[in-house]
């Protein structure tokens, strides 16, 4: 009698464990900078990714009527074009730290959630003169 319920309980536990393990693998969202993505694009194919970086100078195109937003995210080494639908947040501008959530379609990143990483003490870097490490540090410190 006892053994029967124990077996039933173990089966349920195994099912939950299986779901948990599979679920974790599928719903992990990777956080990468453009150069980290460029190192191994295959790893992130078809997965949800949070892409961090700076908005490249002069790359922003926004159409307020159709709400199509196009810009380029860069970390000083690699540039990635981003397509997003929706209004850019207030502080969205050139050289602003951003994190875009979405997925890669070919070489284009399709974003569905756009977050500004704004640091009150941060000075905009001079054109192009920053390294991925500086970008990483900036995004970490910003709110």
């Amino acid at each position: 009698m006892r053994a029967k319920y124990l077996i039933g309980f173990l089966i349920i536990l195994a099912a939950i464990g299986y779901l948990a393990w599979g679920g974790l693998g599928k719903s992990l969202v990777y956080y990468v900078l453009p150069s980290e993505y460029a190192d191994n694009p295959a790893k992130y194919a078809g997965k949800r990714v949070r892409l961090g970086g700076l908005v490249k100078q002069g790359s922003v195109h926004f159409n307020p009527k159709t709400l199509e937003l196009k810009f380029v995210v860069t970390d000083g080494v690699v540039d990635i074009p981003v397509e997003h639908t929706g209004t850019p947040p207030e502080l969205f501008k050139d050289n602003q730290g951003v994190v875009v959530e979405g997925h890669f379609e070919g070489n284009v990143f399709k974003g569905d959630n756009l977050l500004i990483k704004h640091s009150e003490s941060y000075q905009a870097p001079r054109k192009g003169e920053y390294t991925p490490d500086e970008v990483r540090k900036l995004l970490k410190e910003a709110k």
């Binding site: 948990a20 679920g23 974790l24 719903s27 992990l28 990777y30």
Partner: peptide, 30 residues
Amino acid sequence: VVILGTLFPLLVEAFNGAKVSVGAPFFNQL
């Protein structure tokens, strides 16, 4: 399940340095 999903990113970062977050689908699925 909630503890696992909340701490998993810390574990992953401790082991291979990758920055990940666990999305809502994981929690919903369970």
